[in-house]
Amino acid sequence: MASIAPPKAIDPLPAPAPAQPSEPSPAAEAAARRIAQYEAMQHAELQPDKVLVRLDPDAQRFVATLTDSATSEMLRRYPSESQLAYSRAVMAYLRAQLAK
């Protein structure tokens, strides 16, 4: 009978040499600058310059308005005009009921 021999151990591959630090290529530098500009632009867009909070006297609700001071454009408003219209109608109804 033939004897079964254990398999031979395989020598591991030698470890790769550590990478030498090199200067980034011009394309990599340009890409890094472009990414930094893009992130700065996004950060500026996400943070509005002006937040105005006021009380709507007819609806008896606070209204928060976010505007961009560079363009004077309204970015967001809470509550919306339809929600304020509903609140105004409810308050008008309640005032009419109290006046009776």
Rank of each mutant, 00 (worst) to 15 (best):
K50C: 12
K100T: 12
R76F: 11
K50G: 04
A27C: 00
A27V: 05
P16C: 03
F62P: 03
M91K: 12
E45M: 12
R88D: 04
D11T: 15
T65W: 02
R33A: 15
R95K: 11
E73Q: 15
F62W: 01
P7K: 05
S82M: 14
P21G: 00
A28R: 05
A99K: 14
Y78L: 13
L75I: 15
V51P: 04
P12E: 03
Q20R: 08
V63M: 01
Y93M: 13
E29H: 02
M74Y: 00
L94V: 08
H43A: 15
Q37G: 03
M74L: 11
Y78D: 10
R76L: 14
I10W: 04
T67A: 12
M41K: 10
L66P: 01
A44F: 03
S82K: 15
S25K: 01
D58I: 06
A70Y: 04
Q47R: 12
A30S: 01
R54H: 05
A36H: 02
M1E: 13
E45L: 12
P21R: 00
P14S: 15
E73V: 15
P48E: 05
M41T: 10
S69Y: 02
T67V: 12
M41G: 10
V51K: 09
I35E: 15
A30C: 01
A9D: 14
A40F: 03
H43W: 02
A2I: 01
R95D: 08
K100S: 14
S80H: 08
A31N: 09
A19N: 09
L75Y: 03
F62K: 09
R76E: 12
M41L: 10
Q37H: 03
S25W: 00
P7Q: 06
Q37T: 01
R76K: 13
Q60S: 09
Q83Y: 01
L55M: 11
A36K: 05
E39Q: 08
L75R: 08
P14N: 14
D58K: 09
S25C: 02
H43K: 14
E23Q: 07
Y78W: 13
Y78A: 13
